[in-house]
């Protein structure tokens, strides 16, 4: 029973949550349109949570993902202002993401600074750079190419009487999640990351190239944050030096939520995705139920605490402590 609760408690909670909204909002919640909506709304968070999982697998954090997302959006927008095309802007933003991620990796793996401290410092730096590059202004309007903004509005038509659309943002997020899943679950690279998370010293002694792996994993997270920043910029058809700031805490929350439903409490990317969906469903359902936005935030925090507490209680029951 305790084992069941520990493993499936969060899943059960998710089902209850969805059921609750389904009953409360019988006409609007459990519709394909609403779920496609939710999938698009959480797409940016899903990308950040997926790549956050990559570093959290090793027991590390990357606090700079939010400001990296902002910086990437601003870099692309500034490129657009300078007259470069969409491809060049996107490439520049991704390159900045890779570079920023590798800097994090360098600080953490080669210099040996605690990830919390190193990425807290780069959080400030990347955020500051976003302000420097943009001059503190929001870049929008004719400066943003139509094709770039249209990406976030478009999708693959699914038919139906009121035509449904599978949004490109959702597909992008699914692609990133699939890629991270392959990397973490299906390659020896991923298994080595889990080994580092299990016991870094043991992994090192077993011949795992810990320094190199941590460096590249942070690079991965940086690129992912930049992808999310580009998605965000396309969605709002503008770039602002603070717009990605909210992604970081939500992504960490999603990974933690996911950890409560994984065996051994390890971060798993599909579980992180489930955590993202919980957060997205809460926002969507509570908004439709007209729950005050501040009360909503309190409830989201409560749900996270509840899930983590149940997981901890379950573990205690198992170990008999």
């Amino acid at each position: 029973m305790a084992h069941f609760l520990r493993t499936y408690g969060t899943l059960l909670g998710m089902v209850l949550l969805v059921g609750f909204f389904w009953i409360s909002l019988p006409d609007t919640f459990m519709t394909a349109r609403n779920w496609l909506n939710i999938s698009q709304q959480v797409s940016m968070l899903a990308v950040v949570a997926a790549v956050m999982t990559v570093v959290m697998v090793m027991g590390d954090f990357d606090l700079s993902v939010g400001s990296m997302a902002s910086l990437a959006g601003v870099v692309a927008a500034v490129m657009f202002v300078q007259g470069f095309g969409i491809a060049a802007g996107v490439a520049a933003a991704l390159a900045v993401g890779l570079l920023g991620g590798l800097v994090n990796g360098l600080l953490v793996s080669l210099i040996g600074i605690l990830p919390f401290v190193a990425t807290l410092a780069t959080l400030t730096m990347y955020s500051g750079l976003a302000f420097v590059i943009s001059g503190g202004k929001t870049i929008f309007g004719r400066d943003i190419p139509q094709g770039f903004a249209d990406f976030a509005r478009g999708g693959i038509a699914l038919g139906g009487d009121k035509p449904l659309v599978l949004p490109y943002l959702t597909l992008t997020a699914l692609a990133v999640v699939a890629l991270v899943w392959l990397l973490l679950e299906q390659t020896s690279y991923g298994r080595r990351l889990y080994a580092i998370g299990g016991n870094m010293e043991a992994a090192r002694l077993a011949g795992v190239r810990v320094t190199w792996l941590r460096l590249t994993a942070f690079g991965f997270t940086g690129v992912g944050a930049a992808v999310a920043g580009l998605m965000y910029a396309a969605r709002v058809a503008s770039a602002n030096p603070t717009q990605g700031a909210g992604l970081m805490l939500s992504a960490i929350a999603a990974v933690f939520l996911g950890m409560t439903m994984a065996e051994n409490g390890q971060p798993r990317v599909l579980a992180s995705l489930a955590g993202v969906v919980v957060l997205g469903v809460m926002d969507n359902g509570l908004t439709q139920m007209q729950v005050d936005s501040y009360v909503r935030e309190v409830l989201v925090g409560l749900i996270i605490l509840l899930a983590v507490s149940i997981s901890a209680l379950g573990r205690r029951a198992v170990t008999g402590r």
Partner: peptide, 8 residues
Amino acid sequence: GDVAAVIA
């Protein structure tokens, strides 16, 4: 402050 959330 989250403009994408306004859309959502």
